[in-house]
């Protein structure tokens, strides 16, 4: 797609700006769909039905919700730091949106085809941490501050297992660029990294337990980084009102919301690209191509977004010490074992 645009516009910075638009459109559409999905799945798990009155089975409700948020009064608390308060939601969204630049939506489309790919995504998500801290401090509210601190501590801790899990996949594929990683997994379901990638059979069988563990841990760490239940301590309603976005209303709250949803997809998409073949079709060459690529990556990503929602209504919230225990004493040592074992298997 980049080459196509370049042939029209020449080698111009405008090309890169246009390249940045599709993820933004995708995030906005996806947020609407996920809003609906979250409500419906939540309701059906609890034997309810959720929206039923706006359109067929309430499909128009997300639009109504967004309209409501746009119309709402944008309240800035009198004692808040107005500049930082206004800046924070945009910073959080920027961090998440920046991550989308390295997600290959299909063979032909990737926002920025840099070599560093995943490493860049991990780095970009650190802007989110700063944004959360900013929102928590600027609100001048103890709940917000505590929520932001918890959130930052949580994201920083879970970056370590997720980076190590990424390392496991990267060791096999030999590239940080998610597009190359996806290309590497060509040839159907069993060539995906979670099944050992296109390695000789013996190596593959030896490697599967470790890749599967790494994939599972990456997914769990992703849920923690997206601040979703059971790791939603930063937003723990029963103790912290709404965490860092307690004081936010109207459009700013909507931006936080969209950023959270976008982050859910981002972590899913990274896991999908690294372990489940990204835009590769599970049936080998059948149903593959640039358009099918978009379909596959979105379907796979949405499956894990669904999984996150599903998990939300299954597990209660963890305690802070349990959260840290899982990260430092379970996931990190296990991943060290995985990294070591995968390295060993690849060398032998």
């Amino acid at each position: 797609m980049q080459e196509l645009l370049k042939s029209f516009l020449g080698d111009n910075a405008l090309v890169y700006i246009i390249m940045g638009v599709p993820p933004l459109i995708f995030i906005l559409l996806y947020a609407l769909v996920t809003l609906y999905m979250e409500m419906k799945v939540s309701a059906h798990i609890q034997d309810r039905v959720a929206y039923m009155r706006t359109g067929w089975h309430g499909v128009l409700q997300p639009f109504a919700d967004i309209l409501k948020l746009i119309q709402k009064e944008d309240i800035i608390p009198a004692q808040a730091d107005k500049l930082l308060f206004t800046l924070a939601p945009y910073l959080v969204f920027t961090g998440t949106y920046a991550g989308f630049a390295a997600i290959p939506f299909s063979e032909g489309y990737i926002g920025s085809n840099i070599n560093l790919g995943v490493f860049y995504i991990v780095a970009a998500s650190s802007i989110v941490v700063a944004g959360l801290l900013m929102s928590g401090w600027a609100s001048n509210n103890k709940w917000s501050l505590l929520g932001a601190m918890r959130s930052a501590a949580q994201i920083v801790s879970y970056e370590i297992p997720s980076a190590l899990a990424i390392l496991v996949a990267v060791m096999i594929t030999g590239s940080l660029n998610l597009n190359d990683v996806s290309k590497f997994q060509e040839g159907g379901l069993f060539n995906w990294v979670v099944f050992g990638g296109p390695l000789p059979l013996l190596q593959k069988l030896a490697i599967i337990p470790f890749t599967a563990t790494a994939f599972f841990i990456l997914l769990t760490a992703g849920i923690a980084e997206a601040n979703r239940t059971p790791f939603d301590l930063p937003e723990a309603e029963s103790e912290l009102v709404q965490g860092f976005n307690t004081e936010y209303s109207g459009m700013k709250f909507a931006i936080f919301y969209v950023a959270e949803y976008a982050n859910m997809f981002l972590v899913s998409a990274v896991a999908v690209c690294l372990f489940l073949g990204g835009w590769q079709s599970p049936f080998g060459s059948a149903l593959s191509g640039p358009i099918w690529g978009v379909f596959w990556i979105v379907i796979k990503g949405m499956a894990f977004v669904f999984f996150q929602i599903w998990l939300r209504w299954t597990l209660p919230r963890l305690r802070v010490d349990q959260l840290m225990y899982v990260s430092w004493k379970v996931m990190t040592p296990m991943l060290f074992v995985c990294v070591f074992a995968v390295g060993l298997i690849l060398v032998l």
């Binding site: 560093l116 490493f119 860049y120 991990v122 780095a123 970009a124 998500s125 650190s126 802007i127 941490v129 700063a130 801290l133 401090w137 501050l145 601190m149 930052a152 920083v156 970056e159």
Partner: peptide, 20 residues
């Protein structure tokens, strides 16, 4: 990217934590 990861994600967050 390393600058972003180390300085923004690590050192700066640490600094803000310290200040807060």
């Amino acid at each position: 990217v390393t600058q972003l990861l180390v300085y923004v994600g690590g050192i700066l967050v640490l600094l803000i934590f310290g200040v807060m």
